[in-house]
């Protein structure tokens, strides 16, 4: 009765302009997550002093917190204390005038680092102990072993899971709509402010996310098949994949 597809189109054409924001909210965290997540995973694998035990406690704890909470806590933490600091220090202005988009990126990045460090850890675990021993026996240092032998082998294992992680981040990034960041979700809703077609706006947003996720899935499958060429054995029913 009230539903009108024409308004879905209106919302859709507005919302596609905000795709870059949604990509920034998922790709930057993915990138940071891969860098820092791998570092944490490597530290835990090599049992680096202090860092490894700390990560052993922190990562499982942080994994339990939903993304929404990270977002709310960051949203609160970034403004209130810096408003106070700004009375004394001029540099605090940079942070307190920050666009909410960056708060979203920071919150999602923390979440991504936690999730991806777990991905990388299980990828590192998939390389057998014998590989390390073999490396050391031919005189490679720890670092060389990691860089030349272990990581190249764990990457193909990690790629499909990273793909799923990215899809999780793209979908998860929609929660920034709650702190009113202009991403695809809120972009779709801007037209609804005038014509009150909220349901149509949500449906338009759904189509855009669906499109992005399908594309991401396809890209990662292509990449996975590419890396598979150099490796014969890949577990076809890797059930642990469906994590996020």
């Amino acid at each position: 009765m009230i539903f009108d597809f024409q308004y879905v189109v209106t919302s859709f054409t507005t919302a596609i302009h905000y795709i870059p924001a949604t990509l920034a909210l998922s790709l930057i965290p993915l990138f940071l997550g891969i860098i820092f997540g791998t570092m944490i995973a490597v530290c835990r694998r090599f049992r680096i002093k202090f860092v490894a035990p700390l990560a052993d406690i922190a990562i499982p704890v942080m994994k339990g917190i939903p993304l929404v909470l990270y977002l709310f806590i960051m949203n609160f933490l970034i403004f209130k204390p810096f408003d106070m600091l700004a009375q004394y220090y001029a540099w605090a202005d940079i942070i307190r005038y920050m666009d909410k988009l960056y708060i979203g990126i920071i919150a999602i990045s923390i979440y991504a680092i936690v999730i991806i460090s777990e991905t990388m850890r299980s990828a590192l675990m998939s390389v057998g102990k014998g590989q390390y021993e073999a490396c050391y026996s031919v005189g490679l240092t720890r670092w060389q072993a990691l860089w030349r032998v272990i990581l190249p082998q764990s990457l193909p294992v990690a790629i499909p899971v990273l793909g799923n992680n990215l899809i999780g981040l793209i979908k998860g990034s929609s929660v920034v709509y709650l702190i009113t960041v202009l991403d695809v979700m809120n972009g779709a809703l801007t037209t609804a402010q005038i014509n009150y077609r909220f349901l149509e706006a949500y449906i338009a947003a759904a189509f855009i996310y669906w499109g992005i996720c399908l594309l991401t899935e396809w890209l990662f499958t292509v990449w996975e098949n590419h890396t598979k060429k150099y490796q014969m054995r890949i577990d076809k029913h890797n059930l642990r994949k469906e994590v996020l």
Partner: peptide
């Protein structure tokens, strides 16, 4: 979001080149 103010501001932006930066609170 959903307020009449939002509607007025969004409408203004649709008909003017020099746009208002609407921040949803």
């Amino acid at each position: 979001q959903g307020s009449n103010t939002a509607a007025i501001l969004e409408k203004y932006n649709q008909s003017h080149d020099n746009k208002i930066n609407i921040v949803y609170v």
